[in-house]
Amino acid sequence: MLESDSPHPLSLEPAPMARPRRVVRSRPLNPSRPPNLPEIQPLPRWARLNGGAGGVRNAMFLAGAGIAHLDQILRAGADVSSAGRDSVDVSNAGKNFGVEPVFSGALRQRLALTAAAACARLARLREDEAALRDAEHLTGCGGETSPAGRLHRLFRLFASRSVKFDAATLAIAAEHVGAPSAMDAQGLAGALRDAMIKADEPLAAAARVSEAAMHCLAAVPAIDAEIFVLWLADVALAQKLGWKAPIPLLATVVAHPALRRGQNGRRARPRDSDWSTALAGAYALAAGEAIDVAGALSRQTQKLLDAAPKLRAKSAAPVIEMLLADDCVTPARAAKTARLSDRGARRLFDRLIELRAVRELSGRASFRLYGL
């Protein structure tokens, strides 16, 4: 499913994470001497949105604290390509500043699944996370899928490449949220770029892009336009922060009870007059949850890298890289990528389970899915 030779640069088929410009990996992952990953500290309690009145008043502050911490995590990774070398070239010290952690692909893909499931509920579609995971990983690459499956594929774009506000990209994204083909993608692209120019900081960019998009999408069904705007806001935030690819954040929490307001518990919508405040609260909550996910993935990644030298399979390294890059991996896909037999791939995952380096995510005896 994770193809490296995508047929079109704007294809929504997942692809491996692009390497950071400042780091050139001269050799593939060598797990013979796994590195120690830096420990990820959880977001402090004082920086978390608690849903109370104070949380609403301090939404901007809490969002800034959470996003700053998440930004630090995304720039504090270790270059594992040097694992297993007998010496370290001190002349390269300091050149790894800004490297994303090795599990950043899995982080984006896992949050993409959460975002897609949340949007499916907003659109009153039936698929939950388990159904979306099965549909994406157990069917043929690029095959037909359901409306919820198309939302999942849209959010999976976050894990494969940077996203720009150009007409071609927006037209493809619009198709996946159900927007009509007659939508003026060129006009929308121009409006979004203007909004980005006028915004001087990340949260303002996300809010301005939301406002511009809702104006341009007035003819699109409300729920489709809203889901599209949640996606666009995350793209704007990532562009202002200089992330190499966006992270699904806003859609993962937009319907969270802590963000509901009024006696009826109404959720915030991009067309609301106070959307910028609601958006800040949502990012405060989403950043905290994303940091928690990153912490769990970091600990599991360390277990995986520690287990790597104990694996007898010569093709274990490509499978490890696949697990670090995606939400989950099937034995069939691992066998194809690493040139293992089907039986060899199953035995490899059984060994990883035995070492507690991965988890089986489906809970089934067959058609199993494995991930961090």
Rank of each mutant, 00 (worst) to 15 (best):
326 D>S: 15
301 T>M: 03
302 Q>V: 07
329 V>N: 00
311 L>K: 08
296 A>V: 13
306 D>S: 08
293 V>E: 12
292 D>N: 15
328 C>L: 13
314 K>E: 14
307 A>K: 00
289 E>W: 13
292 D>P: 12
332 A>V: 05
295 G>C: 08
329 V>Y: 04
330 T>M: 03
324 L>H: 03
323 L>T: 00
309 P>G: 09
320 I>P: 00
307 A>E: 01
319 V>S: 04
322 M>F: 01
326 D>A: 12
335 A>T: 09
321 E>S: 06
330 T>R: 03
315 S>N: 12
336 K>I: 01
315 S>K: 10
306 D>V: 06
301 T>V: 11
323 L>C: 11
298 S>T: 11
295 G>N: 15
323 L>H: 03
334 A>C: 06
335 A>C: 09
333 R>W: 10
333 R>E: 08
310 K>R: 15
293 V>T: 15
304 L>Y: 08
308 A>G: 10
322 M>K: 02
334 A>E: 00
291 I>M: 11
323 L>W: 04
305 L>S: 01
292 D>S: 15
306 D>G: 07
307 A>R: 00
306 D>H: 10
331 P>N: 06
335 A>V: 07
321 E>C: 11
326 D>P: 08
316 A>H: 12
329 V>Q: 02
318 P>W: 02
320 I>M: 01
319 V>G: 02
315 S>F: 07
298 S>C: 14
311 L>V: 07
336 K>R: 15
306 D>T: 05
299 R>P: 04
297 L>C: 08
332 A>G: 05
294 A>L: 12
329 V>C: 08
304 L>P: 00
307 A>Q: 03
326 D>E: 15
315 S>W: 01
335 A>H: 03
305 L>A: 04
307 A>N: 03
307 A>G: 10
308 A>N: 01
298 S>G: 14
313 A>W: 09
289 E>Y: 14
322 M>G: 01
317 A>Q: 12
299 R>E: 13
328 C>E: 04
296 A>E: 14
293 V>C: 15
313 A>E: 14
316 A>C: 11
302 Q>C: 13
312 R>I: 00
325 A>R: 08
336 K>F: 03
324 L>M: 09
299 R>H: 11
328 C>Y: 05
329 V>E: 01
333 R>Y: 06
291 I>E: 14
310 K>L: 11
305 L>Y: 02
336 K>N: 10
311 L>W: 05
309 P>N: 09
316 A>E: 06
329 V>I: 03
333 R>C: 07
320 I>N: 00
310 K>G: 09
303 K>R: 15
323 L>Q: 10
305 L>H: 09
320 I>T: 03
297 L>G: 12
327 D>L: 07
300 Q>K: 10
304 L>K: 02
306 D>P: 10
301 T>Y: 02
303 K>E: 02
328 C>K: 04
290 A>Q: 09
334 A>H: 00
332 A>L: 06
326 D>T: 14
293 V>M: 13
293 V>G: 11
300 Q>H: 13
305 L>R: 02
302 Q>F: 12
325 A>S: 07
317 A>W: 06
319 V>F: 03
304 L>G: 00
330 T>I: 04
324 L>I: 05
318 P>T: 07
334 A>I: 02
294 A>S: 11
334 A>D: 02
302 Q>S: 14
326 D>G: 14
319 V>D: 02
292 D>C: 09
301 T>R: 00
325 A>Y: 00
336 K>A: 14
293 V>P: 06
335 A>R: 04
321 E>N: 08
333 R>G: 07
315 S>D: 10
